[in-house]
């Protein structure tokens, strides 16, 4: 499949995610049921670019991110870097591969060891990967603090003595310590106030410009995605249902779900005009995914042939793909479309 955007063509992909599937088996009411959290995920990441996984809770975006960061082993599929597979089903990556892919956690409180000082947090990965030279450690720790714009006076503080924004910066500095090629950003601003959110995003941009690190951004906040991502992968019930360059996906969504997501986000103006484009009900459980198009039970313009089979991702134009077989209905006002169908 040719999922590659312009960027990936001009720059070689450094990571290729192929057919990654993650199922969990749970026992409910005495019966073993299988839950497909991520279904045949396929994408590439090139150096220096930002790819966003967008979706609501239950979309599988966090599970996908955990597979990429080697915190969960995929059930099927492989993740390769520079052509060599690093992650295969049921196997954890080798320790040295952790140097290449890092993760900034959503919750800075839970992801920092409460007993470690800022210095210890930063020295630990440096020691583990680069050895124990004291002078070198000091120099690198200073550098990292400067990179994320944290003051050196914080070196001996523990997480509980830091503000939310400071903790999140520390999380980023820790990820940067091992000079990774890819950083997975799991809702990097969800724990922050609006006024600190912008600063964090600006910092992430600056860091990327300096280091050429690629980001895999996981977020439900469309404003954050728009400000940071080059390409967007929209996920619903474990599958990518639309992908493409951020500006094109946002200005011209080709899937009813993407459209609903964009329309539902509150706009920063007084009584912004909203279309009546809404989804019915709520996301179904991943244990019973519809057999046809995943959105059939919520789509405002669902057609009889939508139930037949799961639509594949097809190119709308060069690098913009969508898994909807009736994109022509998207431009029609939803109410008319519904009565027409």
């Amino acid at each position: 499949m040719t999922v590659n955007a312009d960027i990936s063509r001009t720059r070689l992909p450094i990571m290729r995610v192929q057919n990654v599937t993650k199922t969990f088996s749970t026992i409910s009411a005495g019966r073993r049921t299988h839950l497909t959290a991520v279904d045949q995920l396929d994408f590439t990441i090139a150096a220096g670019e930002t790819i966003a996984l967008v979706g609501e809770s239950g979309s599988g975006k966090s599970t996908a991110a955990k597979c990429v960061a080697d915190l969960l082993a995929p059930t099927e599929g492989t993740i390769s870097m520079d052509g060599a597979p690093t992650i295969r089903p049921g196997r954890r990556a080798r320790r040295r591969d952790h140097r290449r892919v890092q993760l900034v956690f959503q919750d800075p409180n839970g992801s920092l060891d409460p007993r470690q000082t800022v210095r210890q947090v930063l020295e630990e990965p440096l020691r583990n990967f680069f050895g124990n030279n004291r002078g070198e450690l000091r120099r690198r720790v200073r550098e990292l603090l400067a990179d994320v714009e944290l003051d050196e006076s914080l070196l001996n503080r523990r997480p509980r003595e830091l503000s939310g924004g400071q903790k999140q910066r520390l999380g980023l500095a820790r990820a940067l310590a091992v000079e990774p090629e890819i950083i997975v950003l799991d809702e990097p601003t969800a724990s922050l106030d609006v006024s600190t959110r912008g600063q964090m995003l600006a910092l992430l941009e600056r860091v990327q410009r300096h280091t050429d690190v690629a980001y895999l951004l996981v977020s439900h906040d469309l404003a954050v995605v728009q400000s940071l991502a080059d390409r967007v992968l929209v996920m619903y019930l474990g599958s990518i249902i639309e992908s493409g360059p951020t500006d094109r996906v946002f200005t011209n969504p080709q899937h009813p779900y993407t459209k609903a997501l964009i329309e539902a986000a509150p706009k920063m103006e007084y009584r912004a005009l909203r279309s009546a484009w809404r989804l019915d009900g709520e996301i179904p459980s991943p244990t019973d995914r519809p057999s046809g198009c995943l959105l059939t039970n919520r789509c405002p313009v669902v057609q009889p042939d939508c139930h037949a089979q799961r639509p594949p991702l097809v190119a709308v134009d060069a690098d913009h793909l969508s898994a909807c077989i009736h994109p022509e209905l998207l431009s029609a006002p939803s109410m008319d479309a519904r009565t027409a169908s």
């Binding site: 312009d6 960027i7 001009t10 720059r11 090139a46 220096g48 670019e49 930002t50 609006v194 006024s195 959110r197 912008g198 995003l201 404003a223 954050v224 728009q226 400000s227 940071l228 991502a229 080059d230 360059p245 951020t246 500006d247 920063m268």
Partner: peptide, 21 residues
């Protein structure tokens, strides 16, 4: 004003980035 400004994030200029690439 600060809250309003902070809520409205600027959008990533992907065209420029593609030229760089």
């Amino acid at each position: 004003q600060l809250l309003l400004d902070a809520s409205e994030l600027k959008q990533r200029d992907t065209t420029e980035r593609r030229i760089i690439a």
